[in-house]
Write a protein that binds this DNA or RNA. Structure first.
Lengths: 184, 184
DNA sequence: GGTTAAGTCGAGGGTGCCCTCGAATTCTGT
DNA sequence: ACAGAATTCGAGGGCACCCTCGACTTAACC
């Protein structure tokens, strides 16, 4: 999988790291659309060097977000371990959006059309898998409105992304109202 | 109020109209951020002429949206005429977002920080007034969750704007779930 | 018809972002 | 130390949008 061509030269490895750090920070602070020039500047590296290491924005995304998205598995597993199906589902939503609220980049990744990064896509699919299971369990237990589906959750996620952007202090309240409407 | 300076020359009046028509169409189709050059092109007028008549984007907004926002009064009055407080409130939301779904420009106007156009601002205030009354009535009747406020409705509106943009076919379903969570 | 104020036009300058490429630099192995 | 390969740099071209301004055109009034 990892095509180990010649290892990077020392200075190159250092620059690559600085770029990754800068990109991670800026994505989290300002979202996925931060200008690449800003990333280069924060990394104290020229724009040309940036393009050498990461020819496209998606190359950054592919390097940065798989780790971030691992958190999805963590909250997914936690929810699956919760015995009460309703608690599991509602808690999962809470955890999910707390995650999004902490990281504008993550918020963007989950809310918009997926970036062209296979690892990111598969992490999202895994997340959707967890969510699907939680929904099914809640449906089986009869605690969730009977017509709820994963597609509704996708819609909710985009809506929540917007609420988080506009009024970071109010997403929890908004979510709790919506969730109230979900009970069977 | 209307400073009736010299009337416009015939050709100027014609161009002004063409610009207004083009802007109305394009705002509705593509939202408030459509490039001004596109408006000029559709109006078959040069960019310089556009700036002569409408020095800023807000000048367009100020001319176009007060009419559009009159619809807010219509649905507001309709809702106030409805005797059942819950029906009135829920129906109002439905009508409001149906309006937004029909016109991307309106969707933008209602969802983002208000444009610098006094007439638009006051129309929105009037709308908020109606909504406030409907909320109060529903609260008084005990059919709406007791802590609901106009601020929640503002949050909802931004969320709905996003849902409408992303998946125009699903806003009604999303809204109905949220509204379900609102009942007392 | 001639005068002139009003209106029109569009090239062009400014900004912010994207991305490329050749010259200059620096690491690495011998 | 040196050669050669790898890496860095940043000026600069491209694009999309914003907005201005002076030369040209035209409607309006006598």
């Amino acid at each position: 999988m990892v095509t180990a061509s010649r290892p990077l030269r020392a200075d190159a490895a250092r620059n690559r790291d600085k770029l990754l750090v800068a990109a991670t920070e800026l994505f989290a602070e300002r979202g996925l659309d931060v200008p690449l020039e800003h990333i280069a500047r924060r990394a104290e590296v020229s724009i040309g060097t940036l393009y050498k290491h990461f020819p496209t924005r998606d190359d950054f995304v592919a390097q940065i977000f798989p780790q971030r998205l691992a958190a999805l598995d963590v909250i997914g597993d936690r929810a699956l371990a919760e015995p009460d199906p309703w608690q599991a589902f509602a808690g999962y939503l809470d955890d999910l959006y707390a995650l999004q609220a902490e990281d504008r980049g993550l918020n963007d990744v989950l809310a918009r059309d997926l970036p062209n990064a296979p690892e990111v896509v598969s992490a999202c699919h895994r997340g959707a898998g967890h969510a699907g299971t939680l929904i099914d369990r809640a449906l089986a237990a009869g605690v969730l409105r009977a017509d709820y589906s994963i597609a509704d959750l996708a819609t909710l996620t985009r809506a929540m992304a917007q609420v988080i952007r506009d009024s970071p202090g109010e997403w929890r309240r908004f979510l709790s109202i919506y969730v109230e409407g979900l009970r069977a």
